[in-house]
Nucleic acid binder design. Structure first.
Lengths: 170, 170
DNA sequence: TTCAGTGCAAATTGTTTGCAGTGAG
DNA sequence: CTCACTGCAAACAATTTGCACTGAA
């Protein structure tokens, strides 16, 4: 698997320094003539202090559980701003919820989603990226973003399923 | 572009004979002990007599415009059955609507979506399919379905944009 | 001081559900 | 004759919006 770029699956990896992310966000806001408010700051921190993957409703739950609650509307509005400034990316899954991932410092990558346990595995294969560009060239298409999602069963859930199926036959 | 499989973009291509599709659907229903009803038939025909791509709400609009209106609930319920039997496939969920494409006789393929005019271009690259399998092997992941979506601007919209931007500079 | 931003509650949108009546097998 | 299917209207769940108030610049 030469071209596959191994990624440690470390959801709570705190390498990205929250302060610098907030700074970047504040700068973006000022550049755009938007205001830096405690709510926006709080939301940005919450997003960046937890797992890479989250959805809007989860975020609402978490933020409203804290003493410094932020309203649902503000959270939705702020997620849009965060997306515009590139700190967060929509990845949208199968259910009706809007899924995001924080994107600072992350190279583009694609996902494997386990149908059973919901696990998310990230991967990146240069060769696939390149082939996509070829396709676009071929159609004169100007790509802005893409997503490759593979759904199925992860190793563990597959093993479990095989076992369950076997025991049903007894 | 050796491995790229050219697909004529012919949305209303009626090669797939509606009668045989309906037949297949009826057989599936019987096999499963489900009933063949006029509503299910009507929905199946509507799906197969129009463009490959559609979303649930569009279908509702079209079916309710006709004299033989079918209720929204029945349409949603039937789409599920059509999906189980493989006559229809769920695709992207960019907006909040549920998008489908009819899948009979179509080989798996991926999509380019134009952000501007909404055009959809289908493509298939064997090499990409193969690389995806490699990725799954590597993680011990058992794939069931996948989708690769590329968003951006199609040739025409890109040209238009370039022109517009240029005229703004005058 | 002045709007952009906030919270709240009401509105929207797509989809799902409960139920009484109906018709396919 | 039965029970799966239908239409309807109400229920849901996620997101959006209108509006009066508030606080960042």
């Amino acid at each position: 698997m030469r071209s596959m770029d191994e990624k440690k699956k470390n959801e709570s990896d705190d390498k990205t320094d929250i302060e610098s992310v907030c700074n970047e966000f504040h700068q973006y806001l000022r550049r755009k003539g938007l205001r830096v408010t405690p709510e926006r700051d709080r939301i940005c921190r919450e997003v960046y202090s937890t797992s890479i993957h989250f959805d809007a409703e989860d975020l609402v739950q978490r933020l409203q559980a804290s003493s410094e609650s932020v309203s649902r509307a503000t959270i939705y509005r702020t997620l849009e701003v965060l997306e515009e400034c590139g700190l967060v990316k929509k990845i949208r899954q199968t259910d009706k919820r809007r899924h995001y991932e924080k994107s600072l410092g992350l190279e583009h990558h694609d996902h494997l989603f386990c149908d059973e346990c919901g696990k998310v595995i990230e991967f990146r294969v240069e060769e696939i990226e390149r082939l996509q560009d070829d396709v676009c060239d071929h159609y004169g298409f100007h790509p802005r973003r893409h997503s490759l999602q593979i759904y199925g069963l992860c190793r563990e859930c597959m093993a479990k399923k095989v076992k369950d199926d076997a025991s049903k036959l007894e």
